[in-house]
Design a protein around this nucleic acid. Structure first.
Lengths: 198, 198
DNA sequence: CACTCATCATACCCGCGAGTATGCTATCGG
DNA sequence: CCGATAGCATACTCGCGGGTATGATGAGTG
């Protein structure tokens, strides 16, 4: 077998993700992805059947990376409130502050309008994130003071909706998407999750 | 001068808006827009210089139509709370329930990533809407019980952010984007605007 | 050492759709 | 009634980029 086989599909997906985040799906050609991975178009097509396939692969790469980062970060952390705030902070950093990811996810939404598989992939990821937040938020309260399950769910849904809104605002008012504002945003989101606590 | 001159640019913009809402910017060819307007590509280009130009024109058409609808609806209405709720309801109907507008605005966001003029156009529109909401919300309170200006602004910002989130969710869970759910959504948004009132 | 087959490179094809060149036509000023 | 011209149609060009055909290479296998 040739030189660089086993990592190549993953490498292509990773580079595709990076390029898509820079220039959007339509702004990236197969040749670009191949070139950045040190190969040419011909060999690209021996790993992926079409452009759509690499887009899907890039999505999977993003979903996997996100989850890995979350779980790595949470690994040695036990205080429930801190765990919650950590994940909120990560979400803000990933979805709002980081321009590349913002571009990528915005493009996914536009693509979801036309492509069912992209849509279901994102939905699955989104469900995971939502369940994660529900678990983290529930853990903050002692069992006897814990709000009803549907209240928790509603708070999480609202918070996730607000993140999308903030992400959008960041697109138009870039000054809110900087490190300095991060704390303000996180505080606002925490307040949505726990409206009656400090 | 020929037959149907003066309305043609507006007609083209209107049809472009409709088509973009059905199939997205890339899914619509100049020929489609021209055909739907009863002309051919040749004459299209005597009104608009490029595809980008018609996209901009379609955006302007959307912004103008939205504002006209709002002001027409509010015209004979004086109760402040009802005025606020009316506009929220219109926003939900326009942005969330109506699939075509949802597609159109989602595409605008993706395009805004690449095109400065599209971005500034949207920003201007968004500012108008925000100021409109701030005025409507302030009017609900009697002057002596009115919250601080920045509290009102924060509530409006959060509500608008939540609309974006709901719009996004509607893309993935279409069942929430139906007439039946409209009331629930509006109630939720009103609660964000006025958290401590019935 | 031959044989195989996955990986990769080179060189090509081709459809699509934005934009253009050119000429027709009907309305309007004179 | 007669040019002038804006609005329009027809028929083209052409670049771009996704996808393919074909052949080289070299690592594992018997």
């Amino acid at each position: 077998m040739p030189r660089s086989a086993p990592q190549m599909p993953a490498l292509l997906a990773e580079n595709a993700f990076a390029l898509f985040g820079e220039r959007g799906f339509d702004g990236v050609k197969i040749d670009d992805i191949a070139a950045r991975s040190g190969v040419t178009k011909g060999s690209f097509y021996s790993h992926y059947r079409s452009k759509r396939a690499i887009v899907l692969a890039a999505c999977q790469h993003y979903y996997r990376t996100y989850q890995q980062n979350v779980h790595r970060e949470l690994a040695g952390m036990s205080d429930p409130l801190l765990r919650l705030r950590t994940v909120v902070t990560m979400s803000v950093r990933t979805c709002v502050i980081d321009r590349s990811t913002r571009v990528f996810t915005t493009e996914i939404f536009a693509l979801s309008l036309k492509d069912e598989q992209v849509r279901t992939g994102w939905l699955q990821f989104y469900d995971c994130v939502r369940e994660l937040y529900i678990g983290l938020l529930a853990a903050v309260y002692p069992p006897d003071k814990r709000p009803a399950a549907d209240e928790i769910r509603a708070a999480v849904d609202l918070m996730l909706a607000a993140i999308e809104g903030v992400k959008l605002r960041a697109l138009y008012e870039p000054h809110i998407a900087c490190e300095a504002e991060q704390r303000t945003i996180v505080d606002g989101l925490m307040k949505i999750l726990m409206p009656y606590d400090p």
